[in-house]
Amino acid sequence: MCTDHGCASFIDKAYRCDQPEWAMPHQAEARLRVDEPHEDQLLERPTHLQHTKQPFPGYHQKMEVLLGITGKDFTIVASSKAAMRGATILKAQDVKQRQLNKSSLLAYSGEAGDTVQFAEYIQANTQLYSMRNEADLSPSAIAHFVRGELATSLRSRKPYNVNLLLGGLDPITLKPSLYWLDYLASLAPVPYAAHGYAQYYCLSILDKHHNPDIDLETGIKLLNMCTDELKRRMPIDFKGMTVKAVTKDGVIDIDFDDDKVVKSA
């Protein structure tokens, strides 16, 4: 507010005031009072903007954990069980995963409505393909299909805000694969991957301990190291993980101890 000179209230107008800069003692204060908060400080969109799309994932969306690890003959896909809306946990047994066909699994995080809508759209299309052709799409084919859909959506009026991990096992060669996709439709084939804040904690652990020849048991051990670190360092309780693995026997559920207590430093 620039009250001294009687000019209209906010900072952009204060700059237009006839007085020289040194004659405006309240300018710094005015800058702080500009009523629109910096975008970083927003958890909820302000009411007057709520009809528009949030252009980037909010903090609570980045708090969702998605993890993927490949090994010798398997791909582990894990996702956190907490369904969040702002600072509230609405559900503690959420499964942020969809099985696409016998040998591929899609894990998703991002904006509430978009995630399930998009994942089920992909699921329906891969299943339709399997029915029509009596052959499953390979994980690589699905990954590129998903990227295409997400990339088209990105340039549309209302893009999907979804981050994905696609784990799979090639039905013929039995080679495991893992694809990392973000809401901008960037696609990367990777040996191990994470989404959101989990990336900062888990990727360094996996850099050190992962190698492509590990067996499923070692994979689960690595996953435990990652979740332990997340429990130690992340400021919220993500309510444990849903863990599944794609193996030559199809997609299997993996028992995972969510109640393990990890002491912080």
Partner: peptide, 13 residues
């Protein structure tokens, strides 16, 4: 390199 700002996502891009 494929990165998100300072974070490296992939080193085979």
């Amino acid at each position: 390199r494929l990165g998100l700002q300072a974070l490296t996502v992939s080193n085979n891009f």
